[in-house]
Design a protein around this nucleic acid. Structure first.
Lengths: 182, 182
DNA sequence: ATACAATATGGAGACGATCTCCGGTTGTCA
DNA sequence: TGACAACCGGAGATCGTCTCCATATTGTAT
């Protein structure tokens, strides 16, 4: 999660400005064309692209903190492994639902195809927490973490369903109970 | 599913040519820009857009038949409602997995935001089959069909995961067992 | 058969978003 | 306070999407 190399002062300043602007835009669920983020942050398009090659990279940067916090919490938990998994899944989906406006973008972090920092960290955490729960006998041990990722991804990318929030919560519950030992 | 009005002979011919060309392209997992479908079918871009306003509309037309067949089969089944639901879900996901190349496009049919013929028919079928299974006591009665749609959508749009096929099958199994009465 | 109206066609080009490229600026370090 | 590397900016090239309308085809009424 640490930068590969120290950024020059102005670069860091610009990067931060872009992320801040993007977070604001996401919060308000405004949908900009990518270039606009540059204008919003008061930098040139080139600068934007240099820091964030893709929209997903930007989204990942914005949510890196939140996702990492959620993940850390799950890893450091002292709860029983099974409960911990349940809480983590509910928590993650809850976060998406509460930030409905943001979830659309968050989908990028969950997206399977994208190997962003946030993305892979999330998947690692899911794998970890599942492994622990399985070892504890709380869930089946024959379910790949990827199956869970697919469900999370489905939730994150269905934000425009009218009943998205409730359906998503229902989906996690089904997921959680489906993971339990047969 | 029937056309709203009779198409003129040449129109119907062109429409069919486009769908045929698109099916071929999807089969080979070639990814065209939308305009290319026109060239492939030997018609002008205008014609393409007149018949299919969006990429999703085209995808829906291509898979309308297959999806409808799957749906009809589930509706007409004489199996026990619970088994029928399981079979339908496994069957649908199986179809997606076997036509991995097509599933990417099929995702459009499953997509929540899109009210295509195929899309809504699928959702209706899911709802129907679930209702029957619930009435029969085979599954919980507090799960919205939308929750299932979200999972299906997740599967359909995760085709570029390296382990997509196996993860998808795992996801349906979790879904199926999660739907069972607690 | 013929003519006319309704319907459909095609593809040039407008449009809008994405991304690159490089002359100029700023920060850093000795 | 040079001097060099790192970084900036934003004009404009690129590319997919979609519209528009003069022309062509089909159906039908006589």
């Amino acid at each position: 999660m640490s930068e590969s190399r120290a950024l020059r002062a102005d670069a860091r300043r610009n990067r931060d400005a872009i992320v801040a602007a993007a977070r604001l835009a996401f919060d308000h669920d405004e949908q900009f064309r990518f270039d606009d983020f540059a204008a919003r942050a008061g930098v040139g398009v080139g600068t934007l692209y240099r820091h964030f090659p893709t929209r997903e990279a930007l989204a990942a940067a914005v949510y890196e903190g939140e996702v990492a916090a959620l993940c850390d919490q799950a890893r450091d938990s002292t709860r029983a492994p099974g409960e911990n998994l349940d809480a983590f899944l509910r928590g993650f989906v809850g976060y998406m639902v509460e930030h409905a406006a943001l979830a659309r973008t968050l989908a990028a972090v969950v997206d399977p195809a994208i190997q962003t920092v946030g993305g892979s960290e999330l998947e690692h955490t899911v794998a970890d927490v599942m492994t622990r729960a399985a070892a504890d006998g709380a869930i089946r041990d024959d379910v790949a973490p990827g199956a869970v990722m697919i469900v999370l991804h489905g939730i994150g990318s269905a934000t425009d369903r009218p009943l998205w929030a409730s359906e998503s919560r229902a989906a996690v519950e089904v997921l959680i109970s489906g993971l339990k030992k047969a």
